[in-house]
Amino acid sequence: MTTSNAPAKSLGHVLITGGCGFLGHHIVNLLHERHPLTRVSVLDLRTTHNRNSSPNISYYDSDITDSEASKALFAKLKPDIVIHTASPPFNGKNELHYKVNVEGTKSLLSAAQENGVKAFVYTSSSSVVCDPKSELINANETYPLITGDAQPEYYTTTKAYAESAVLSANRHPSNFLTCAIRPAGIFGEGDVQLLPKMVTAYHKGQTKFQVGSNDNLFDFTYVQNIAHGHLLAVSALLQTHKMLPTVPLDSERVDGEAFFITNGQPVYFWDFARAVWREAGDTLPMSSVWHLGEDFAFTVGATLEWLFWLMGKTPNLTRQQVRYSCLTKYYSIEKAKKRLGYRPIVNLDEGIRRGVGYILEQQKKAAEKKGQ
């Protein structure tokens, strides 16, 4: 299977939910770059941001939790392919997570099944196999989903439920094919969670602290690599669709399957943070870095959470952040390599350069605007 970036023929009509969001708009842009003749419909709650001006790309304000509205829109648009990236923020309310991630996904599946969609690619999460204590070393897709009481992050439980619904819908009807992409540690231009917090820490002079011994490998993935993985999945499902009703060998199958997508470059957690800080301008030598023990940092985090809770605020250091920065979590991408032909197209250093550069440019523009 080719991974060429050269423009290719139209894929038909691709509908992308959450296509104005962080990952979604990168998928829209990469899809247009590689397949400029493809008709693209973008669905989002609000489609005012991250718009592509191509005449082949249309935008629709839509709430995927409105089942009847989704079915009416699908009946009107008749897409061939659905890439479903829409999801609320990780720190949103539980009821919203369930409503969007579970009910919204099932609504889209129903609309797709009723309107002749050939391929449905769902953006899941690598966290669906994570629990709060176990380390993940080269974890693969045979690992069980962690949900319910065993999963402290309700967002992750709902992503797992949605993934299960998507994969269970595969070949129902027989010409409806589905798969799921599980990104890990996504970052890049437009990132609202990972890089902005790290760059803010640099501006606040917080780079002199490190939690733990920094011996835990972690996966971070540049956003364009994840977009690339989604498009490879689309192509693979369309190829399988052409061969229906044949079922591929288990060792080759894409439909009904989940795939981890990472940069394939696990790094020590604080090495990544310091690479981000260096790109932002940090010159602090390692000899000046204060190392906080994990247990001590956990206690500090708990104390800060309680104090800030009294003030109705969130501290810069929480117990969750301490756990996050001290656990080993990285994944195998061998399945994606073998079945999707996946290879990262942007390495980690270049991804950091692009992502941090984007933030600094936005900050520069904001400062200039404020100074006018």
Rank of each mutant, 00 (worst) to 15 (best):
H203I: 13
Y202A: 03
F209H: 14
F209Q: 11
N170K: 11
A184P: 01
N170P: 00
T200C: 02
A169Y: 10
A162V: 12
A165L: 07
Q206N: 05
T207V: 14
A150W: 10
H203C: 04
S174D: 15
Y202P: 01
Q206C: 00
R171Y: 09
P152V: 09
P144R: 09
A180Q: 04
Q210S: 04
P173S: 12
A160V: 07
E163K: 00
P183G: 07
T142D: 14
P183L: 00
E163I: 03
S168T: 15
K204C: 06
N140M: 10
R171P: 02
R171G: 06
G148P: 11
S168P: 02
S168W: 01
S164C: 10
Q193Y: 04
V166E: 09
T200P: 01
D149S: 14
T158S: 12
P173L: 07
V199N: 03
L194Q: 05
G148D: 11
L194W: 05
A165W: 12
T207K: 00
N170F: 07
T147I: 15
Q193T: 02
L195E: 13
A162D: 07
V166R: 02
P152Q: 07
S164Y: 08
F187E: 10
T207Y: 10
I181Q: 03
P196M: 02
Y154A: 12
V199Q: 05
V166L: 03
Y155K: 12
D149P: 13
K159E: 13
V199S: 02
A201T: 08
C179M: 04
E163G: 01
Q206V: 01
A201L: 00
A184H: 07
T158N: 09
I186F: 02
Q193H: 04
T158E: 14
E141T: 01
T142F: 06
A169I: 02
T200M: 07
L145I: 14
R171L: 06
N170H: 12
L145Y: 14
V192G: 00
L194I: 15
Q193A: 05
A201K: 14
S174M: 09
T158W: 08
P152M: 05
K197I: 07
P183T: 06
V199K: 08
K159N: 12
Y202D: 01
I181V: 14
L167P: 00
H203N: 15
A169S: 07
G190R: 11
Y154D: 11
G148C: 07
C179Y: 03
G148K: 10
A150E: 14
R171N: 08
T142A: 15
N170L: 06
N140S: 14
L177S: 07
T147R: 08
N175W: 06
